[in-house]
Design a protein around this nucleic acid. Structure first.
Lengths: 135, 135, 135, 135
DNA sequence: GTGGTCTAGACCACC
DNA sequence: GTGGTCTAGACCACG
């Protein structure tokens, strides 16, 4: 089973954190439905070309957050999550990231209009990257 | 000389990085003009209640980025920076932060409208914190 | 892994600077190829008989110049550098040194011919040191 | 009395050293003849916009090298120097600077031809700066 | 094992 | 007084 996760080698962000954030997003946005059996630690490590230790840590962290459940000898599954919890999880990281962005903007005295413009430019840039022509 | 820098003790972000980011913002937004003599590393260390060495690293990093100039025995100054370079520096961190926010949002399948709403809410929240009414 | 770096104890030039300049030269002249894993800071410190901290500063400075990339827990690598940037880096220090030499010569009113003669003598002297005949 | 000395604010080279080197060059190249009365410490400090302490150190260093003589209450004079000593002094700094340049070049594996080319380019560049048109 | 942060103290050089 | 270098040790985070 293939999981859509991209690793950024150049980023200073730790490997385990990049993977955790992306896997978490797949779960709370229901792209991975409750009950889904995830690939084994070994498989995912092989797919992402990183250490087994790193993946183990990812699964442990997400289990601690109640998003995964591990059953001895049967593998790791996406947990059933309460609807309210799911929404809370879903926007938590997004809001935190926007707060950091706004703080950075306020520090260099950006206006609200400038922030909105930057947001639109970044969204446009990301849309271009996803649809490179229509191929 | 007093420099408006706030340290967040609880944050996982390294001390030297918090200081660097804030001092950098003060420079590229011209709140500290070119040619300004900064407080000595000893003074700033005392003000921020941290080690002299931490401040030296901050000054060193900003000098490597071309934003400060230090002369032995004379102190540390805000460098003269080309207007275009200054603008580039000014928005660099902001755009990077917005890119991270948009990426986080797209991972949980937020729409553009949702992002704009979140941005406005965060800005409103920050404005409240700065103007705590007339209490 | 062995790195060919010579330290001059008697020189007034700071240790970290001697090491930085030589390591930088090895990288920009491709004697250390992009992607090469450098010795750990502890290993290199042991080889050069200096403090770990001195080596960390060297690696840090070269990373700030875009010539190295470090990943926590994985070590320090020679970065991929754009061909043009590499050439620029390669001759930067050389041209600067020649400018200093020409300035010194002009101050004592050397002619162009005298400078060329001195250059040839110095090159000859360095060649002798590298090839000590058949002694 | 005006002395042709240029200070480079941006250089990392200490003030006192820049001044010493240039004043030394003026003496050993006979642009300042033996017996010439130099400006007082105060005057030169004012001309170069630097501290009196810095100039005092320059005069002391050059006196220690036998190039200046100070007579109590009468000022500082250019000393009589033996012809052989003068020639030795004259090329000492030049050769040292060329050695540093050649070493930098060899480290990045420059050929002799490349060094000669760089030398000519640098000389050409300096000639342009001195004769900006023919004014 | 790796690098990263923060602390400390001593000594030097410059102005 | 200023910054600069080199040393040390302790503790944390990553793989």
């Amino acid at each position: 089973m293939w999981i859509p996760i991209q690793i950024n080698e150049t980023s200073a962000e730790p490997l385990y954190h990049q993977i955790t954030v992306q896997l978490r997003a797949l779960i709370v946005s229901r792209q991975l439905a409750a009950g889904t059996l995830l690939p084994s630690i070994r498989e995912l490590a092989q797919q992402l070309k990183c250490s087994i230790i790193t993946i183990r840590r990812v699964y442990q962290d997400l289990e601690a957050q109640g998003l995964l459940r591990t059953r001895q000898g049967m593998g790791t599954y996406v947990a059933e999550v309460d609807e309210d919890d799911r929404d809370r999880h879903r926007f938590e990281a997004v809001v935190t990231a926007f707060e950091a962005a706004v703080d950075a903007a306020l520090r260099v005295q950006c206006t609200t209009a400038e922030m909105e413009k930057i947001l639109q430019q970044v969204i446009a840039k990301r849309n271009e990257q996803k649809k490179p022509g229509g191929s």
